[in-house]
Computed example of a mutant assay.
Amino acid sequence: MPENERVSPSPVPPGPPVQSFKLRRGRMGVVRQEALAEHLGRFEVRPDTDLDPRALFGDDNPVVLEIGSGMGDATLEMAQAAPDVNVLAAEVHTPGIGALLQGIVERGLTNVRLLEADGRAYLTERVRPATLAGVRVYFPDPWPKARHHKRRLVNPAFVALVADRLVAGGTLHCATDWEPYAEQMVEVIGADPAFTLDPDRSRPSWRPVTRFERRGLDLGHVVNDVLARRR
Results as ranks from 00 to 15, higher is better:
Glu106Gly: 15
Trp143Gln: 02
His148Lys: 02
Leu115Arg: 15
Asp177Arg: 07
Arg207Ser: 13
Trp206Arg: 12
Arg201Gln: 15
Leu101Cys: 06
Ala160Gln: 04
Ser202Cys: 04
Glu179Ser: 07
His148Pro: 04
Lys145His: 11
Gly119Ile: 11
Arg207Ile: 13
Ala157Glu: 03
Glu179Asp: 03
Thr124Val: 08
Glu183Asp: 11
Ala146Gly: 04
Leu153Met: 14
Ala175Thr: 13
Pro204Ala: 04
Arg136Gln: 07
Leu114Glu: 09
Pro193Ser: 15
Trp178Thr: 01
Asp192Ile: 02
Gly190Asn: 05
Thr110Ile: 04
Leu114Gln: 11
Thr210Ala: 00
Glu183Phe: 03
Glu187Ser: 11
Gly169Met: 11
Leu115Gln: 14
Gly134Thr: 14
Phe212Ser: 04
Thr131Tyr: 11
Ala194Tyr: 08
Leu172Gln: 10
Gly108Thr: 02
Val167Pro: 06
Gln184Trp: 09
Val154Asn: 00
Val167Asn: 06
Leu109Gly: 09
Leu161His: 04
Trp143Cys: 08
Gln184Leu: 15
Gly169Tyr: 09
Val162Tyr: 02
Trp206Tyr: 14
Leu114Phe: 09
Val186Pro: 01
Thr210Leu: 01
Arg211Glu: 10
Leu153Gly: 00
Asp141Gln: 05
Val159Arg: 00
Val154Gly: 01
Leu217Cys: 08
Ser205Glu: 13
Glu187Leu: 07
Val105Arg: 13
Gly190Thr: 08
Val137Cys: 03
Glu116Met: 15
Pro144Glu: 08
Phe212Tyr: 14
Gln102Phe: 10
Val154Glu: 04
Tyr138Gly: 07
Arg211Gln: 14
Leu114Pro: 06
Pro208Asn: 06
Arg151Phe: 00
Pro156Tyr: 12
Ala163Lys: 07
Gly103Ile: 02
Trp206Gln: 07
His148Asp: 01
His173Pro: 11
Gly119Phe: 10
Arg107Ala: 01
Arg126Glu: 12
Val209Thr: 14
Glu179Val: 04
Leu166Glu: 00
Cys174Ser: 08
Trp178Cys: 02
Glu106Arg: 15
Ala191Ser: 13
Pro180Trp: 03
Arg126Phe: 12
Tyr138Met: 12
Tyr122Arg: 09
Asp192Gln: 07
Leu132Gly: 04
Pro140Val: 11
Ala117Asp: 13
Lys145Met: 07
Ala117Cys: 13
Trp206Leu: 06
Asp218Met: 14
Ala130Phe: 06
His173Lys: 08
Gln184Phe: 04
Thr124Glu: 11
Leu219Lys: 14
Leu197Ala: 10
Ala121Thr: 05
Asp118Gly: 10
Pro193Thr: 10
Val127Ala: 11
Thr171Pro: 12
Gly220His: 06
Pro199Leu: 14
Glu183His: 05
Met185Gln: 07
Glu125Asn: 12
Tyr138Ile: 13
Leu197Arg: 05
Thr110Cys: 11
Trp206Asn: 10
Glu187Thr: 09
Val135Asp: 07
Asp177Ala: 09
His173Gln: 13
Lys145Ala: 04
Met185Asn: 03
Leu197Gln: 05
Leu101Arg: 06
Val159Ser: 06
Val167Asp: 08
Pro144His: 02
Ala160Asn: 03
Arg214Leu: 12
Val127Met: 12
Arg107Leu: 02
Leu132Asn: 01
Arg113Val: 03
Glu116Asn: 15
Leu101Pro: 01
Arg147His: 07
Pro180Ala: 05
Gly119Thr: 07
Gly170Trp: 01
